[in-house]
């Protein structure tokens, strides 16, 4: 069963074609990776799915409902969470407060002016629990802006997961990480997304093959191939696209 489906999605930026006729299917419960050379339109596709832009053409279905043209906020409320390639946290709030905002969102506590947030024990306990699973518990008092790069990235991913989404979209979670940090991050993602549906953009092929059940290859704004890691490895078109890039 498809949890996410895009139907002939196309997008232009000021007349520049970025995506052409993209039909992406993400199955319930799978780990789906989107790969492709730089400029293939991966992040644009992400941004369109999560509501940053409205596509020029085509439709997006999430849990069989049309979500085309809904804003990020409404799409999130329907159960889709995302992280960003460029870390986007609340830099002057500490790690605890960052995660707590995600927890508040998950519990639909939005316009509550009647209680001290610090005295909402259940919220705090859940936040602490998540921080522990992110290995950020000891850093909880530090503002997000001063965390080390690896920890800051963890927080970024953690916030997307802490809203407990039905589908989590991770945009290059390991971007800029050292080999060691990447290893930790992959373990973390594996652990935290167990049993969940995930779409991930990633450059690092090791990470992709470790995490993904299925892979979609995007090239010049179109889907080149979709399949299991083995199928993708064996696909000649994909090889041509990647080799072609190397020759340039």
């Amino acid at each position: 069963m498809n949890i996410l489906e895009t139907r002939s999605l196309s997008h232009n930026f000021d007349g520049l074609r970025v995506l052409t006729d993209v039909n992406l299917n993400v199955l319930q419960g799978e780990k789906h990776a989107i790969i492709g050379p730089n400029g293939a339109g991966k992040t644009t596709l992400f941004n369109i799915i999560t509501g940053t832009y409205t596509p020029s053409q085509g439709k997006i279905f999430f849990k069989d409902k049309d979500i085309t043209g809904l804003g990020p906020c409404n799409i999130q409320r329907r159960g889709m969470g995302r992280s960003f390639q460029i870390t986007s946290t609340f830099d002057r709030l500490n790690a605890f407060q960052n995660i707590r905002l995600a927890v508040l969102s998950n519990r639909k506590i939005r316009f509550n002016f009647l209680r001290f947030v610090d005295k909402m024990t259940d919220v705090s306990l859940e936040t602490i629990d998540i921080l522990k699973r992110l290995n950020l518990f000891d850093d909880r008092h530090f503002p997000a802006g001063v965390l080390s790069y690896g920890k800051h990235r963890c927080l970024e991913i953690g916030m997307a997961l802490a809203t407990n989404p039905d589908l989590v979209m991770l945009d290059e979670p390991a971007a800029g990480m050292s080999a060691e940090e990447t290893h930790t991050a992959v373990e973390l993602i594996q652990r935290l997304t167990e049993g969940k549906t995930m779409v991930i953009i990633e450059h690092d092929m090791d990470v992709v093959f470790k995490l993904a059940d299925r892979i979609t290859v995007l090239h010049h704004g179109t889907i080149l191939a979709t399949g299991t890691p083995e199928e993708i490895k064996a696909n000649e078109q994909v090889q041509a696209a990647y080799l072609g890039r190397l020759e340039e």
Binding site: C73, T89, F90, R92, L93, R110, N112, F113, F116, M159
Partner: peptide
């Protein structure tokens, strides 16, 4: 007011209003 959950969302908006939107707050 600044200490309520709403107050937290408000402060989050100061730091990063884009992310507040992506967390599902209007």
């Amino acid at each position: 007011f600044t200490k309520t959950p709403f107050g937290q969302i408000m402060v989050g908006m100061r730091d990063n209003s884009k992310r507040i939107g992506y967390l599902g707050f209007k």
